[in-house]
């Protein structure tokens, strides 16, 4: 029962990861033992003259096959980041007008991604990043300009 629940949850998570174009990382991935594989490979060429009956059979790997993450990365790319946290922080703490533009672009990232427009989502993500940087730089420049003035006026 427990096991069924776990796999159902994993399947659901995999589905959501798939919507984001990602590979779902299971909480406890199957352990892949490289030592075992090496010994299985080295056993066969060293003892060729031994009779087949005496040779120990290669260890059977009972674990599910190890999935190469690189192979999946080449096939598809994940949803570009929306930078929503940074956009909100930039809006609230640095410069409101530029931050609002960043939030609009952040929302456009996911709406375009879920509509299937990968190129548009990537562009929107880049734009959101640019506007967040603009907002933070404006905030820092303002502080740098304002601080000496405020000290002089004191």
């Amino acid at each position: 029962m427990e096991n069924d629940k776990e796999t159902a949850k994993d399947k659901q998570m995999e589905e959501w990861a798939g919507r984001l174009g990602m590979e779902y990382k299971r909480p406890e991935p199957p352990k892949w033992n490289p030592v075992r594989e090496e010994s299985a490979e080295s056993d066969t060429p060293v003892t060729p003259e031994m009779p087949q009956s005496q040779q120990t059979p290669p260890p059977v790997n009972t674990n599910p096959p190890f999935r190469q993450p690189e192979a999946n990365l080449n096939k598809r790319e994940p949803m570009p980041p929306t930078y929503l946290l940074w956009a909100v922080l930039a809006t609230i703490c640095c410069c409101m007008p530029a931050g609002v533009v960043a939030i609009v672009f952040a929302s456009s990232v996911s709406s375009r991604w879920f509509a299937g427009d990968i190129e548009g989502a990537r562009k929107a993500s880049r734009n959101a990043e640019i506007w967040i940087i603009v907002s933070i730089v404006l905030g820092i420049v303002w502080s740098a300009v304002y601080l000496p003035i405020s000290l002089l006026l004191q």
Binding site: Q12, M13, W16, A17, R19, L20, M22, E23, Y24, K25, P27, M79, T82, L84, V88, T91, I92, V100, I103, V104, A106, S107, S108, V109, S110, S111, F114
Partner: peptide, 25 residues
């Protein structure tokens, strides 16, 4: 994001982002 893809998808859905933007304005 890799561990909880559903939460990421929910928080970064167009509706959630628009709600945050509208709330701020």
């Amino acid at each position: 994001r890799n561990r909880y893809p559903r939460m990421y998808a929910t928080f970064n859905s167009p509706i959630a982002i628009a709600a945050v933007g509208v709330a701020i304005v």
